Simulated assay, not measured.
Amino acid sequence: MTAIYLDNNASTPIDPSVAAAMRPYLEEAFGNPSSGHWASTPAKAALEKARGQVAALLDSEPDEIVFTSGGSEANNLAIKGTFFALKHKGEHIITTAVEHPAVLAPCRFLEQLGATVTYLPVDSTGRVEPEAVRRAITPRTILISVMHANNEVGTIQPIEEIGAVAREHGIRFHTDAAQSVGKIPTKVDALGVDLLTIAGHKLYAPKGIGALYVRRGVTLEPLIHGAGHELGRRAGTESALLAVGLGAACALATDLEPMTGIRRLRDHLWEALQHRFGERIVLNGHPEHRLPNTVSVSFVGVAGAEVLAKLDGVAASTGSACHAGRVELSPVLAAMGVPEEIGMGAVRFSLGRITNEAEIDAVVDQLRTHMLPAGSPGGS
C-alpha cells in the first residue's frame, strides 16, 4: 500500500526545517523565559525571535503577537476576551453560519451569559455578503468574526470588504485565518482586521502552538489569569520549543511561491475528476475564491464515507459526520443549501507541500476503478 496524504487542512506534517529549528530546544535553552538569569536568556531570545517571525508573516509588530496553545484558544481569546472587555458597550456579536466550531461554540457559550449573536447566512458557494454584515450591525455590536477561508470547502471570504465595513462603524473585527495562513496573503493591514487567529499545525508547525494577532490598542480580558505573561494577555510560562517551531513555520510561509504548484495540482485533480465522472461529481465551494490546495467534491448518489473506504492508503476527509449511528450532512454544506443527496457524498481532498502529480493521478485511478462500473462513461 502506498500512503497518500491529502488531508492537509486537518493537519500538516512538521516541515523538516521546522523540526531542525526546534531540535536544540529539546535539550538546551530549558530555562523559564521570564526568569532573569543565564538559563532564561537563550529561551527568552528564542521566544522573541519567533514572535518576530510570526509578526513578519502578518506584517505586524512583534508586541501584537500573543502565543497560544493553538487556533481554538486563539479564537476563544478573541471572542470571549472581547465580550468581557467590551460588554459595558454592548453585547452583540456578528458571525457566519459556516464558521469553525472554535468560533461557533464560544459564541453559543456567550449567549448563555447575555450575548446576542447574529449568524449570517452564506450563498451557495459559502460566501457571506459584506452588505449583509453592514445590515446586521446595531448600536450594541462589539465584534464581527468572519473566517478568512473555510476549512471544509476552501471558500475565501471577502475579508477586506468586511474589514472596511467594520472600520466604518468602529467595530472590532476578528478573522479565523487558521486555514489561510501560509496559503494566501494574510497581511493584517490589507485585510483590515484587529484580531487574527493562527494554528501552528495547519502550516507545518507542531500541534499545541498557535497565535493571536492583537492590534495595538485592542484590549482583551484574558482567558487564563495568572502572572503577566504575553504582556498580560495570556498567563502561563511560554514554551520556547513550540514558539520556535511556529516561528520557523511562519518564516517558511513568507514564500508563497510553492502555492503556485499546489494550485496547479488542485486544478489538475478537479479537471481529472470532471473528466472521469462528469455529472456524477459536483464541486463544493467557490470556483474561484478558493484556497489553492482545497478540492471539496460531492459524488452524487454515494456516501462520502463509502468513497473513502474504497481508497487504499489515501488519507482524506468526508463532508459529513456520524452521530449516534447515523450520518448527518455537514453544517457547512447545509448552510450553503447543498441538497442532502449531494452533500452526503462530499469528500475533501486538501493538498500540501509534499503532494505530487503521481499521487493525484493514483487517487483518480483508484476512484475510477472502484466507483465506475464497467462500460459506464469514463470507465474504460
Rank of each mutant, 00 (worst) to 15 (best):
R326H: 12
G245W: 04
H289P: 02
S296Q: 13
N293W: 07
L256N: 14
A251C: 09
A334K: 10
V332M: 03
A324Q: 13
G228L: 14
C322S: 13
G304W: 02
L246A: 07
A251K: 09
R266M: 00
T237D: 15
D267M: 09
L283S: 02
A253F: 14
A253W: 12
G285P: 00
T294S: 08
L256F: 09
E328L: 10
E271I: 10
G236F: 07
A321G: 09
V295F: 01
E271C: 10
W270L: 07
R276Q: 14
G261M: 08
A227Y: 09
L273T: 11
L256W: 13
V314T: 06
R233Q: 10
R266G: 00
S239R: 07
R280Q: 12
L333M: 01
C322G: 10
G236I: 08
A253C: 15
R263D: 06
I281M: 09
A303K: 13
V314S: 06
A324T: 15
P331A: 04
V244L: 05
L241N: 03
A334C: 07
L311E: 10
P258K: 11
A335T: 02
A243E: 00
H229M: 15
L283F: 01
K310P: 06
A316D: 04
P258N: 06
R276F: 08
R326S: 13
G245E: 02
G261E: 06
E279H: 03
R290L: 06
N284L: 04
D312F: 04
A324W: 12
G325L: 12
G245M: 03
S330Y: 03
L269Q: 00
R276A: 14
N284P: 02
C322Q: 15
H289I: 03
V300R: 01
R233D: 06
A316H: 05
A315W: 13
V332I: 09
A248T: 04
G261I: 03
E288L: 05
P292I: 05
A240L: 10
G325Q: 07
E271W: 09
R263H: 10
N284W: 05
P292M: 07
R233G: 05
F277E: 08
G301V: 01
R276C: 12
S330M: 01
V332Q: 09
A309M: 11
E230K: 14
G285W: 00
A324K: 14
R264A: 14
V332D: 05
V282F: 10
K310I: 06
D255I: 11
G232Q: 03
Q274E: 15
T260D: 15
H275S: 08
L265I: 03
V332R: 02
H323F: 15
M259W: 08
H268A: 07
H229K: 12
V332N: 03
Q274V: 14
L283G: 02
D255E: 09
G304H: 07
L241K: 04
E257S: 13
T260P: 14
V297T: 03
G261D: 06
L242H: 12
G301D: 01
E230I: 09
G226E: 11
R263Y: 09
G313T: 05
G232H: 04
A251T: 11
A316R: 03
T318D: 12
L265R: 10
S296N: 05
L329T: 01
A334F: 03
N293T: 08
L265W: 06
V295Y: 00
E306R: 11
R290E: 02
G301E: 01
R264Q: 07
H323A: 08
A235P: 10
T254A: 09
H323Q: 14
I281K: 02
L269G: 00
T260S: 15
